[in-house]
Amino acid sequence: MPARMPGVSAPDPFRRQLLEALPRLRRYARTLDFDSHATDDLVQTTIERALTHWHQFDQRRDMRVWLLSIAHNAHLDRLRRDRRLAIVDPAQLAESAVAAEGSFGADPGVQTALRMDLLTALARLSPPHREVLLLAGVEQLSYAECAEVLGVPQGTVMSRLSRARAEMRAALDGNRPGPNAQPGLRRVV
């Protein structure tokens, strides 16, 4: 990590933009790990890296895209360092969704079941598919912005997004396609 220059800190406008972006950054980090402690660590690492490298931020860029890129890279760094993939147990995920539901005071019926189904289906997606689906669907980034965050070509983003949506539809319909499942061929007459 480069040494910080003494007496030089990020300017106030940069810090304000950083604070405004925190809720989205936290939401994205939470979907990468599904673990509150890992989420907190990832957000902290992202903020530390952003503040350390604030002078590299181009004001013409969107702060949100820059921070999500840092978070994505920090997450990949941690996965590489751990040399293992975190396995999310859908039953444990469903239990945490039910526990969180009580704090919102929502109807425990249909909404809870839908959230559990969505979280379980999301947890079953491969990390590349989950990341692009969340960036495009939840964070509402364009294909180009998703490509910038993930460091992949725009065509790869579109392909992963298409596959992720198909897998989510299949999972929510009760079907679970395999990792290399291809849509069936249809004969058009």
Rank of each mutant, 00 (worst) to 15 (best):
L133N: 08
D58R: 09
D12Y: 08
Q56S: 12
T39E: 15
D89R: 01
G7D: 13
Q44D: 13
E48G: 13
I87T: 11
S126K: 06
P2S: 12
G109D: 14
R15F: 07
R24L: 08
R165L: 11
V157G: 14
L172I: 01
V152H: 11
G174A: 03
L79F: 02
R16K: 09
A3Q: 11
F104T: 03
I47L: 15
R24V: 00
D58I: 00
R15Q: 08
A123Y: 07
L42D: 05
N73I: 00
A144Y: 02
E167P: 02
P11I: 00
R160F: 05
T46C: 08
L122T: 09
L22M: 09
D41S: 08
M168C: 09
E167S: 12
L161K: 01
G7V: 00
P179Q: 07
V110H: 15
P153H: 12
H75P: 03
I47W: 10
Q59H: 12
D40C: 04
V98I: 09
G102W: 07
L185G: 14
L185C: 08
D62I: 00
L118Q: 10
T45Y: 06
A144R: 04
L25Y: 07
P127C: 01
C146L: 04
M5G: 05
G7I: 00
L134W: 10
L134R: 02
L114Q: 11
V88W: 13
S69D: 10
Q154W: 04
V188E: 15
Y143D: 15
P108R: 05
R176F: 14
G105D: 12
I47Y: 14
A99F: 11
R84M: 09
D35I: 00
P153F: 04
G7E: 11
